[in-house]
Design a protein around this nucleic acid. Structure first.
Ligand code: FES
Ligand code: FES
Lengths: 155, 155
DNA sequence: GTAAAGTTGACTAAATTACTCGGGTATGAG
DNA sequence: CTCATACCCGAGTAATTTAGTCAACTTTAC
């Protein structure tokens, strides 16, 4: 499978949404501030997340994004898939033709690895992740720092 | 972890070596012919495999490469590691600093994924792979075709 | 109306990957 | 001895992918 910064950013951003759920729409500007991901880049990512039906968008002032389903029902695999290419560790993308039309020696091996990764990532939901102490602590630190930056910027 | 064409080629080439073990050194030209990997590229890969103590090289006429250890004792993970960067799915390479010196929300998740992939790949040896019917069939096809090409080229 | 926010698509810069090339060096067969 | 075989090595490059920017547009609350 393809695990790029893009996929990692998407997951991070979705975790941020999950952590701040239930308080109305979250703007990308907030996510950008807390997670240090450029706003324009987030726009790109959320365009895909929206098309994949993982988030709802609310336009206009007071708008933003929110999770379309509860965090308990969105798996990490879905998020990665939404912004990346299909999950596969093969060179041939599952077609079995990477040796000039024929299947190569190691094809089966990579297929199995793809399965493993997919199984792992689809067994974990956004909620599983944000329940962890570790993540809670990181989130708390980010909240504090984000408010401090507000003070510096606007106070 | 980083799973590039390079890693896949390395595994394929090592499988070829394993399949033709016990008949003296295998030249890269043979591997290249059977697996359709460019000779220059193979040289690059085997340079690393040799430095990682996975293969022995024999120079001069009649020379080539052979596995340094039996195929039952070389894991896929070792091969991938030998040609790629360290196995990690994190952005920070395990340092926990990808958010301007601080750990990011999803760090722990990617660490766990890295573990999973590593566990999987290190649990499979070259021998496990070449024992499979599927792989045996592909190998047989390659042998036949390779001999046919000999005839065309030299006969 | 106007400012906040999402929407879109094209564009660019940087990084990585996947190679190639050209010249080495060791060595065994004849 | 010699020379063809095969490994050895590092620089260089072309292609692809990734990461990120920019500018113009739409919707909507106040
Ligand atoms: S990876 Fe599928 S044929 Fe080689
Ligand atoms: S992936 Fe390690 S800190 Fe973000």
């Amino acid at each position: 499978m393809k695990l790029s910064t893009k996929g990692r950013y998407a997951v991070t951003a979705m975790l941020d949404l999950a952590l701040h759920a239930g308080k109305g729409p979250i703007t990308l500007a907030e996510v950008s501030g807390r997670q240090h991901i450029s706003l324009s880049y987030l726009e790109q990512l959320f365009s895909r997340l929206r098309k994949a039906n993982l988030v709802d968008s609310i336009r206009g002032p007071g708008g933003g994004y929110e999770l379309k389903r509860p965090a308990t029902q969105i798996s990490i695999a879905e998020v990665v898939l939404a912004v990346n290419e299909p999950i596969t560790a093969t060179r041939c993308n599952g077609k079995g033709d990477c040796q000039g039309g024929d299947v190569c020696l190691s094809h089966q091996l990579w297929s199995e690895l793809s399965d493993q990764i997919y199984q792992f990532l689809s067994g974990i939901t956004l909620d599983h992740v944000i329940q962890r102490d570790f993540v809670q602590q990181v989130a708390e630190r980010q909240n504090v720092r984000f408010r401090e930056e507000d003070v510096i910027a606007f106070g």
